[in-house]
Amino acid sequence: MTIDFNKNNDGLVPAIIQDATTKNVLMLGYMNAEALEKTKATKLVTFFSRTKNRLWTKGEESGNVLHLVDIKVDCDNDTLLVSVNPNGPTCHKGTDTCWGEANEASYGFISKLEGVIEDRRLNYGPKESYVSSLFAKGINKVAQKVGEEAVEVVIEAKDNDDNLFLNESADLLFHYLMLLQAKGFTIKDVVDILKGREK
């Protein structure tokens, strides 16, 4: 790993700190060559503090250290991406990130879709929304729809029409997300179970 510490004439490079699991950006700090070497040696993220003019290990006073997982350098060799497992909140103000956001896992479009389902369930009437109408019929109806969609996926899996198979798979996933909400859960709860099974 070649890093250009002299590009800015101050011997420092930006270090973007990212949670290794959630992939959320937690903070931005600066490292010089000595801070990088200490980070690698101790497996605790260490920066060069421009205000204190010294090396500074994150959490050295609060205990909210950042455990090193991986370090990557960008294409210009002048910025680091540091993957970590945080021990507590990262920001000195007590928040998970320096942008005041919660460090929660997001599953991209799936999380957005869960939000849409929740909104339709809570804020729309049965005549305004298919989702609302299905929830209004109760959990048995929601569960039945998941079963029906699962059977349709199996049927289409045996045929050669990939478009139908993928559309039925989308229907199954959509209704499964509804069933999870009907039971008071989200996809995160399922992912947590799968992570617990990881060997």
Rank of each mutant, 00 (worst) to 15 (best):
G138Y: 12
K7W: 02
K93F: 04
D189C: 09
Q181L: 00
I155F: 06
K199E: 10
Q181K: 07
H175Q: 09
N64Q: 09
V84N: 03
V146M: 00
A102H: 10
K72Y: 09
G63M: 07
E118D: 15
P86Y: 03
S111R: 02
G196D: 11
T186E: 06
C98M: 11
L80W: 07
C98A: 13
F185N: 15
Y107E: 09
A105C: 05
L26Y: 09
E148T: 05
Y30P: 05
K127A: 15
K188E: 10
D159H: 14
R120G: 02
V151M: 04
E148H: 03
A35L: 09
A143L: 15
E114C: 13
V190S: 07
T46Q: 11
G94I: 02
A150V: 01
S133V: 00
G29P: 09
G138Q: 12
D96Q: 05
T39G: 02
K112R: 10
K40R: 15
I193P: 04
K127V: 14
T42R: 05
T22N: 06
G138M: 12
K137Q: 14
E198H: 10
L66H: 07
L113C: 05
V73A: 06
E128Y: 08
N167A: 06
K58E: 03
L80C: 10
K72V: 08
L180N: 06
L122P: 00
P89C: 15
Y130Q: 13
T51Y: 03
V191M: 13
S133C: 03
Q144P: 01
G184A: 10
F135A: 00
L134T: 04
H175N: 14
T95Y: 06
L166K: 13
V116D: 14
R50K: 15
K93E: 11
I187Y: 11
K43P: 02
S49D: 01
N8V: 02
Y107L: 13
D119N: 12
G108V: 06
L28N: 12
D78Q: 05
S133I: 00
D161K: 07
L164R: 12
L113K: 10
G115Y: 13
S49E: 00
L28P: 04
I71H: 06
V154T: 05
H175C: 11
E152Q: 14
Q144R: 15
T46P: 10
T79Y: 03
K93A: 14
D74L: 08
S169A: 15
K112H: 11
L179F: 08
T186I: 09
T39P: 01
T57F: 00
L66R: 04
V82W: 04
N6L: 14
K72M: 10
D19W: 01
M178L: 14
C91E: 03
K38R: 15
L66K: 05
N32K: 03
V190N: 04
D161M: 02
V151D: 03
N167L: 03
D162K: 08
A35S: 11
A170E: 08
F165T: 03
G147K: 04
H175P: 00
L177Y: 10
E168V: 08
M27Y: 10
T39H: 02
K199Y: 08
D119S: 13
I155P: 00
L36M: 14
G184P: 05
G108E: 07
G147M: 04
P86S: 06
N9K: 13
F109M: 12
L177K: 12
P89V: 15
L172G: 00
N77L: 09
C98I: 12
